[in-house]
């Protein structure tokens, strides 16, 4: 398959089941909602070492938030419910509770409940107050700037993590420009996050390593500097490869995001130095979700 001079590999991205939740962070203005959301979703690029994958889903208009203030929807993904609950609580406590003017609300209200303010309330040292409004319990925790308002719980749902595609370009700036265009397009798709810095990862990994202590290492087949040293997947004109990883609430959400991103990359085309698009997989052994690039690009957008 070739679109606008960009060769689409006949391969697939391989994804695996995860657990996910969404929270809504509001603040006096968008700037402070972003501060809280960025802190909460920081150091959450990969479950390999971060414990979870998290990212900002989108900005919320005051009309969309529970308290009528500007807000951010953020999502957190983890391999299991326990891990997700732990990560959520730690991050909420250290990053949102601490952020001036912030409030924290559930972004998913059906599914298995997990604690949001349920235990954070004890920070109030007995001065915390609970309010049940429309069947939902909120905690009011007195803090130095006023009150931290927090939903008692949010809900976690089954999700899919690890959707991805690789952009192979003639130069590093061109690969990055294509990925930026893809991320801009994918950011408009609901229910997905791209957890890596700026949504883009330059250090794609393979399973295993020559070092026993490591269970993942650099994807040498796609490293351009190793073209003459390893069993490379790159043709001579490829000088840079970047990857976009997608976590979503469903297979369909990831497909939609991949399509939006791939369309954006293909629009730039070969004239912008984009030569190939591929995807990362582990031969179908890692996860039950396979996202075939030809199938995704073959469907009407």
């Amino acid at each position: 398959m070739n679109i606008n001079g960009v060769e689409i590999d006949d391969t697939f991205a391989e994804a695996f089941p995860m657990k996910a939740t969404r929270v809504i962070i509001t603040a006096q203005n968008l700037k402070w909602a972003y501060h809280a959301a960025q802190a909460m979703t920081g150091f959450a690029t990969s479950v390999i070492a971060c414990g979870c994958e998290a990212g900002i889903e989108r900005e919320l208009d005051p009309s969309e938030t529970p308290d009528g203030r500007p807000g951010i929807a953020a999502m957190i993904f983890a391999m299991g419910g326990k891990g997700l609950a732990k990560q959520l609580e730690t991050r909420a406590g250290q990053c949102v509770l601490t952020a001036p003017t912030s409030a924290l609300f559930a972004g998913i209200t059906s599914g298995d409940p997990i604690a949001l303010g349920k235990n954070l309330r004890f920070f109030g040292d007995g001065f915390q107050l609970s309010k049940k409004i429309d069947g939902r319990r909120y905690w009011r925790v007195p803090v130095m700037d006023g009150e931290f308002l927090c939903d008692e719980s949010t809900c976690m749902v089954p999700a899919v993590g690890g959707g991805n595609f690789l952009v192979l370009a003639e130069s590093q700036p061109q690969a990055l420009a294509a990925c930026e265009a893809a991320i801009a397009a994918m950011s408009t798709v609901p229910n997905v996050i791209m957890p890596f810095p700026g949504g883009v990862v330059r250090s794609g990994s393979k399973v295993g390593s020559k070092y026993k202590a490591l269970n993942a290492s650099t994807n040498d087949a796609f490293c351009p500097t190793l073209k003459g040293q390893t069993d490379t997947q790159l043709s001579p004109e490829i000088e840079s490869v970047m990857e976009i990883v997608i976590d979503g609430l469903s297979e369909q959400d990831i497909k939609r995001a991949m399509r939006a991103g791939l369309d954006a990359v293909c629009r730039l085309g070969a004239s912008s130095g984009i030569r190939r698009i591929s995807a990362g997989n582990y031969g179908g052994k890692l996860g039950p979700f396979l996202f075939r690039l030809h199938e995704i690009m073959g469907q009407p957008s």
Partner: peptide
């Protein structure tokens, strides 16, 4: 004096919206 977030939730809640206190929402 304070601005308390939970009051926004209360006054904007469906049970109160359009009724008493709607002007405070």
């Amino acid at each position: 004096t304070h601005t308390l977030g939970f009051l926004s939730l209360l006054f904007r809640s469906p049970v109160l919206h359009g009724r008493a206190f709607a002007d405070f929402a």
